[in-house]
């Protein structure tokens, strides 16, 4: 395609799009630093009071802690379990590759609200009554993030031609575990980091499973925000900005990692990479 700037059309389109996407965030930011803002277009005074309140409110702090804990645990356990599974089916058990791919696509057809209906019925009572606990969130978040993790890891394995690298390692006397840990893992690290960042961002923003499966019994930041937004707008705006900053950091790191990864097939436009990696579903 022609990369020349031609006319005003593109500039107008991008400006409008940026406004549509930017104004809600900007307004929320203004609201979060506004002292009085009742009937004027711009705030009448400015303050950091709401942020101070946010980080001194034990309820919010505990929620931040819980959100980080469950999102971090999802990233850690997800990578720990899905990386070997993706590798083993890729390298040693090609017969199970189809089943694995199916499991990795299925969550796309199971948005939280659907998954929750099955999970509630299974885990509210019975032999494993973990509904309402941290654990059901952890395991169901892993399923929600399974597609991103699996795709990111599998793409990385293919990009480095892990099959041949592992054979090379084995021909040099390494057993399978050594080949996996010393050769495969270091070389797919960018893919693992991407998968982790995306999983973190998605887990942090998860609402439906949390609301339906644990509700008030394990209050994450999203739940606290949902309760607060109908009561205290200013505090809510501070929480929204905190959430926005966290998501922004994850996304920026994700782009940074994606651009730093050398691709076999020569140069890839950063946008193309972003597009293929960041198809995180909205809620």
């Amino acid at each position: 395609m022609n990369k020349k700037v031609s006319g005003r059309g593109p500039a107008i389109i991008l400006t409008l799009a940026a406004l549509y996407l930017g104004v809600p965030i900007l307004a929320t930011f203004m609201f979060s630093v506004a002292g009085r803002w009742d009937s004027t277009v711009l705030p009448e005074s400015y303050t950091f009071h709401w942020y101070v309140r946010m980080i001194t409110d034990p309820l919010v702090l505990a929620a931040i802690g819980r959100s980080f804990l469950v999102s971090g645990a999802t990233v850690a356990l997800g990578l720990l379990v899905i990386t070997p599974a993706a590798f083993i089916t890729y390298q040693y058990l090609p017969a199970l590759r189809g089943a694995m791919r199916f499991l990795a696509v299925l969550p796309f057809a199971l948005p939280g609200v659907i998954l929750a209906v099955g999970l509630i019925q299974l885990y509210s009572s019975g032999p494993l009554p973990i509904a309402g606990t941290f654990w059901i969130l952890l395991f169901s978040y892993i399923i929600v993030c399974l597609p991103y993790m699996f795709n990111s890891i599998t793409n990385s394995l293919q990009a480095i031609d892990a099959r041949t690298l592992v054979e090379a390692a084995e021909s040099l006397g390494a057993n399978r575990t050594a080949a996996f840990i010393k050769v495969v893992v270091p070389n797919i690290k960018p893919g693992l980091i991407s998968a982790g960042l995306l999983t973190f961002a998605v887990s942090l923003g998860e609402f439906v499973l949390t609301n339906m499966l644990v509700g008030g019994r394990y209050q994450t930041l999203q739940l606290v925000l949902e309760k607060a937004m109908h009561v205290d707008g200013h505090l809510s705006s501070a929480i929204v900005m905190l959430y926005f900053v966290l998501v922004a950091i994850s996304s920026l790191l994700l782009i940074f990692v994606a651009q730093g990864t050398p691709r076999r097939s020569g140069k890839v436009d950063p946008g193309t990479q972003a597009g293929s990696q960041m198809t995180g579903y909205a809620q």
Partner: peptide, 30 residues
């Protein structure tokens, strides 16, 4: 016998050097 205990050395069409290791570390791996 698993590949790593057959006492073979193998050279691949795609070189299959470990991208994260220097030439010296690649040779030293075995």
């Amino acid at each position: 016998v698993p590949a790593n205990r057959r006492g073979i050395g193998m050279v691949f069409q795609s070189y299959a050097l470990f991208p994260n290791m220097t030439a010296l570390d690649n040779v030293g791996f075995g």
